[in-house]
């Protein structure tokens, strides 16, 4: 008996995987049904549906990049304090001092890549007409995921707290000031007043809500940190789960009828 077989027949191995190695047809079916991670997939699929030239694997790559971001992001959190005093220097130290120094690089390039792949995934879904019935709603969930991916990237952009960061966020968040009705410099904000007092001022408008202040400052850093590390990832994970569920329930990856 080879070492491999010995291991695969041991009680420990079998307690974890509950079935022999997937080398024959039966066990290849069983593995898909019993393994938690694999059960995201169906047991069998149409050959053309999983062809690389059909899906470009872009949804899968986006998901993988999301996982990479989660992992490297947690590692970065060990080294990073979101305060004006430390944020910049913690990032600087990552490069100069820490052993896992390329975690920041992987996290940043992974984030850029994820933005690109999510567009390309949408591009593919459009070009194969996969948003057509019965998959309309999954497309809508997809658009939400697209927005949240961009917001994840946007909120993360501030965290290094360097010149690039705060000015990019300043440019971006100035838009909120111009929100119709809800921005202190947007059309129609004067209409929201009570007994002569403006409800929307630059200390109570959409930009203020986003930044936690009139300018990009410590409160903004805190807000963006929480959005970036907790709030948005949680929502994205939930939506991805629904997205995958719906891919299966809508009949698997689209194919000609």
């Amino acid at each position: 008996m080879s070492v491999g077989d010995y291991i695969r027949n041991s009680q420990i191995w079998r307690s974890v995987f509950r079935h022999p190695a997937p080398t024959d047809r039966r066990n290849r079916v069983v593995v898909m049904l019993t393994n938690f991670f694999l059960h995201l997939h169906p047991v069998s699929v149409k050959q053309q549906g999983i062809a690389l030239s059909y899906t470009w694997c872009m949804g899968g790559i986006t998901f993988f990049l999301f996982l990479v971001e989660a992992l490297t992001g947690v590692l970065l959190m060990f080294y990073y304090r979101p305060t004006l005093e430390w944020a910049f220097y913690d990032i600087q130290a990552l490069r100069d001092v820490q052993t896992l120094g390329i975690m920041r690089e992987i996290h940043r390039w992974g984030a850029h890549a994820m933005v690109i792949t999510v567009w390309l995934h949408m591009y593919r879904v459009f070009l194969t007409g996969s948003y057509k019935p019965p998959r309309e709603f999954n497309w809508v969930i997809g658009v939400l995921l697209l927005v949240l991916t961009l917001l994840l990237s946007f909120t993360g952009y501030l965290l290094p707290w360097d010149q690039l960061a705060i000015w990019a966020i300043t440019v971006g968040s100035n838009m909120a000031r111009a929100h119709p009705f809800l921005g202190g410099e947007g059309p129609g904000f004067q209409l929201l007043n009570m007994g002569g007092y403006d409800l929307i001022t630059n200390a109570s408008d959409a930009k203020f809500l986003l930044l936690g202040g009139r300018f990009v400052g410590e409160a903004t850093l805190n807000r963006f940190y929480i959005l970036h590390c907790v709030a948005i990832p949680v929502v994205v994970s939930g939506l991805i789960a629904i997205h995958f569920w719906r891919v299966r329930k809508d009949g698997g990856i689209s194919q000609p009828l």
Partner: peptide, 13 residues
Amino acid sequence: EQEDNEKVLVWPD
């Protein structure tokens, strides 16, 4: 997409 479009097992394909 309709040619050679048999069902295949997810493991290993």
